[in-house]
């Protein structure tokens, strides 16, 4: 059984990545040095590590959750904003394992393009993909959501004014 220790640096609440090892999600814990650590065990000689960033607007039921949120938050008044930048991480690399495996993953500052992470390890590895990019689909959904909200707000304001005028008139 081989143990792999992953150390993730430069993470903040905005980045919040999802890490999978051979398709299995792994959970990181914050250590006293403000970095995150995750450990996993495997019998394999090589593992595939994938780092992604989930956007709320990338989900299958994004429209349903957005609608429920809009209603509960009193027509968006108390709603936290959706991520406007829609930057996602596309990072995938293969790692050849030894008896002891220490991998340091440094996250770069989020940007519209460029390398997402820097990997430091004594193991042999091959990067398949490593970049930050703007998710165009999520960006379109964000625009659709904003326009829908604007239309709804106009309708709500018109209706409110109509009812107030009617009430005052009586």
């Amino acid at each position: 059984m081989r143990t792999v220790n992953l150390r993730m640096l430069g993470l903040d609440s905005k980045v919040c990545p999802n890490i999978t090892v051979d398709g299995k999600y792994i959970k990181g814990n914050k250590n006293k040095f403000e970095s995150y650590e995750a450990t996993f065990e495997t019998e394999k000689d090589e593992v595939e590590i994938v780092i992604t960033r989930f956007l709320e607007l990338n989900g299958k039921l994004w429209w349903l959750y957005a609608l429920i949120s809009f209603i509960i938050s009193v027509f968006g008044l108390f709603e936290p904003r959706y991520d406007k930048k829609n930057i996602v991480i596309d990072c995938k690399f293969k790692l050849k394992l030894k008896d002891t495996n220490e991998v340091k993953i440094k996250f770069n500052t989020m940007s519209k393009e460029g390398n997402a992470v820097e990997i430091e390890t004594e193991n042999e590895y091959s990067i398949i993909e490593n970049k930050y990019y703007v998710d165009k689909k999520a960006k379109t959904k964000w625009t659709i959501l904003l326009l829908t909200k604007l239309v709804l707000w106009v309708i709500i304001i018109v209706l409110a004014v109509y009812f107030i005028i009617n009430k005052v008139g009586k």
Binding site: Y25, I72, E129
Partner: peptide, 18 residues
């Protein structure tokens, strides 16, 4: 894209938003 639209993650994000 390697993003997996995992239902659990999506629901978790919604609960946090709520």
């Amino acid at each position: 894209s390697y993003i997996t639209s995992n239902g659990k993650i999506e629901f978790n994000a919604f609960i946090t938003r709520l």
